[in-house]
């Protein structure tokens, strides 16, 4: 029997233990694609978190009405509707960020995190629990993107949130494509190393 978990645990599991990017390895395309700076990472994370919360809520509310066979297409349409909302809002209020993130905003639809949470969590839990789950996962995703964006910006541009720390050229490769892969690779390796050390200590 699975223990019913508290709302607090439900929220925090998405941030560290089941972090969608570092542990579950979901949603890698925006993770690598938009994190050339910390601001971009934060913007993308927030947009995804909004879609996650809203689609989880909507799906939890209508889950009993949707026939099981057309479940997945129905989920995708709900998600796509919220993505369109985000797309229009960002185009209206944050045009500069919208320009930077570009293609990756509509691509939230096919971000495996969103559909994954819909299928794994929202389709069998209550509306409140689903919202909290979406929020936790969204914050975890944002945290991952922010971390990756900050590291890449620091190394590649020697700046922090656009504020130049040292007047010199950074290691350009980190803001380019290869830097994204290598930074994520080392972050995951570090997390695995920490986990390994911890399990050794407890034994």
């Amino acid at each position: 029997m699975e223990q019913p978990i508290s709302l607090k645990e439900n929220f925090f599991k998405g941030i560290i233990k089941e972090n969608p990017v570092f542990v579950l390895l979901l949603g890698c395309c925006p993770t690598l694609g938009v994190t050339s700076s910390a601001v971009n990472g934060l913007g993308m994370g927030a947009a995804t978190a909004f879609v996650l919360v809203m689609s989880n809520l909507a799906i939890a509310l209508v889950k009993n009405v949707i026939p099981d066979k057309v479940r997945i297409p129905a989920f995708i349409v709900i998600i796509a509707a919220f993505v369109t909302v985000v797309q229009l809002l960002m185009a209206a209020y944050t045009p500069a960020l919208n320009e930077q993130l570009g293609l990756f905003i509509p691509l939230i639809v096919v971000n495996c995190i969103v559909l994954g949470r819909a299928e794994a969590f929202a389709s069998r839990n209550t509306a409140v629990a689903s919202m909290i789950d979406g929020l936790g996962m969204g914050v975890g995703f944002t945290f991952a993107l922010l971390l990756l964006g900050t590291i890449r910006e620091l190394l590649g541009n020697l700046s922090f949130f656009g504020y130049k720390l040292v007047e010199a050229d950074g290691i350009l490769i980190f803001v380019l494509a290869p830097g994204a892969f290598i930074t994520l690779g080392f972050i995951i390796a570090t997390m695995k190393w920490l986990k390994e050390r911890e399990s050794k200590r407890t034994h």
Partner: peptide
């Protein structure tokens, strides 16, 4: 080393491949 096996090694390989394509 154990913590580099799997995904981390794969990502670093991808990085080098991406550099080659540059």
């Amino acid at each position: 080393p154990e913590y580099m096996q799997g995904i981390p090694a794969a990502l670093i390989t991808a990085s080098i491949l991406s550099m080659a394509f540059m």
